[in-house]
């Protein structure tokens, strides 16, 4: 039987606060890597129904008709996955911040590599930001592209399906990532495995 962990409002607020501190540090590091000012913030930390995740993700980038989604699992003291959502565009902005060549912007394999690159960088920064604050040991696994240049509306069913989850609630961090200079706005959704909620609570209680 699965014991469903819950968090008090106070704990949720604390998590949000810690996440925002973590994102501040992550943003500074990413700014150094991308050589542009990166802003990261956490507008929302909440318990949600696992099966509502997809509608949340779609809402996140609903102003872009074409989107890309890259997913990365993380393992360690707490486990879950990070979903990076980036609007479909011409890739020229990514070319610049990731050190690619101009011609790469139209090469599909390079476009995919850029998506994996940016997702991995942002996810590493965000997760290590979180892990540092909570003194947890987490490691990211390799990213994989689960939607490449897909119509936003096509994404109804397929990408947030989890084999082991029914209608349990899980904890989710909604992170906004943007580089204002080049008009790049992305969303990152970190969702925890239900089985990891206990460890997170323990880590949090240690701090509070």
């Amino acid at each position: 039987m699965v014991i469903i962990e819950t968090f008090t409002d106070y704990q949720i607020d604390a998590l949000k606060e810690l996440a925002n501190i973590g994102m501040g540090r992550a943003g500074a590091k990413l700014s150094e890597v991308f050589e542009h000012r990166v802003t990261l913030n956490v507008p929302n930390v909440a318990m949600v129904d696992a099966d509502k995740l997809d509608s949340l993700a779609r809402k996140a980038e609903s102003n872009s008709p074409i989107i890309n989604i890259i997913q990365q699992a993380f393992i360690g003291d707490i486990e879950g996955r990070s979903t990076f959502i980036i609007g479909g565009h011409n890739f020229t902005d990514l070319v610049e911040i990731l050190g690619y060549e101009e011609s790469d912007a139209v090469d599909e394999r390079r476009q995919k590599e850029m998506l994996l690159d940016i997702s991995n960088a942002v996810n590493s920064a965000c997760l290590s930001g979180l892990a540092e604050q909570l003194t947890l040991d987490i490691e990211l696994t390799n990213p994989s592209i689960i939607a490449f240049n897909k119509e936003n509306i096509e994404l109804k069913d397929f990408f947030f399906k989890q084999k082991d989850q029914q209608t349990h609630q899980t904890l989710l961090f909604e992170i906004k990532f943007f580089i204002k200079d080049i008009d790049l706005y992305c969303d990152n959704i970190i969702s925890l495995k239900i089985s990891s909620l206990k460890n997170l609570r323990v880590a949090l209680e240690r701090l509070l």
Binding site: K29, L98, G99, R109, R110, L116, N120, A121, S124
Partner: peptide, 27 residues
């Protein structure tokens, strides 16, 4: 080797202190 790209990769690994991969499927 695309030097700008590789140096970015090196730098990103140093700054973010993370692991990164490249796959034959893209490169």
């Amino acid at each position: 080797v695309n030097e700008a790209w590789l140096s970015k990769k090196i730098r990103s690994t140093l700054v973010l202190n993370n692991q990164a991969v490249t796959s034959w499927e893209q490169r």
